[in-house]
């Protein structure tokens, strides 16, 4: 095949592509990024991605940044698809963020706010007010009921259970040592008295 013929074939192919009807490509994009390269190319900042399933729906929550700073606005994107067919969930979604205290009391820091689908994701912009453990609650109508889904979110470096558990073990060892030393002291005193 001559070079001229190859060039003409390529030109014809390019012209044919122009006449192929174009369709919106949203279904294959997340945040404007092609879905096949989403995890590799986006985002540049560290993110937190959490995936949960409720019934037929698969929820993917992405937090920007993944390690939020108190007082700085953040973004939460929720991507919901049918786990089998991969078709999008399109009904409104409600999100609420609460800060959890050590003893379980909750302080609302965001929402509940209902948003509709935008560019295939639901976008929320919460600001975490302090260092601590937070809980993100998503509510959505699912058939006949309203279902909820919760995601943990940690802001800063709050006290972890490992720290408390370590404190318990440390306290226990200290107690054992104290009791043991007192017993030894008592035994010595008794021995002195006896002698």
């Amino acid at each position: 095949m001559s070079r001229t013929r190859v060039a003409l074939s390529l030109l014809l192919g390019a012209l044919l592509l122009l006449v192929v009807p174009s369709t919106p490509a949203w279904a294959h994009h997340i945040m404007g990024i092609p879905h096949y390269s989403y995890d590799e190319n986006y985002p540049q900042a560290p993110v937190l991605k959490l995936i949960e399933n409720v019934g037929q729906w698969e929820f993917q929550l992405t937090a920007y940044p993944g390690k939020p700073v108190p007082g700085v606005p953040t973004e939460l994107h929720v991507y919901v698809v049918d786990a089998q067919s991969r078709s999008l969930y399109r009904q409104p979604l409600t999100l609420e963020v609460e800060r959890l205290s050590l003893l379980g009391s909750r302080h609302e820091v965001f929402g509940p706010r209902e948003v509709t689908l935008s560019e295939n994701v639901y976008k929320f912009y919460p600001t975490y007010d302090a260092v601590g453990n937070y809980e993100i609650t998503l509510s959505f109508p699912d058939g006949e009921i309203t279902s909820t889904l919760t995601f943990p979110m940690v802001v800063g470096e709050p006290g972890s259970p490992a720290l408390i558990l370590g404190g318990c073990v440390g306290g226990f060892v200290l107690l054992l040592l104290t009791v043991r030393s007192l017993k030894i002291k008592r035994a010595r005193r008794a021995a002195r008295r006896a002698s």
């Binding site: 959890l100 050590l102 003893l103 379980g104 009391s105 909750r106 259970p161």
Partner: peptide
Amino acid sequence: GLGVTMVPRV
């Protein structure tokens, strides 16, 4: 009062 029945960690 603090709803600890709903908090596994507490």
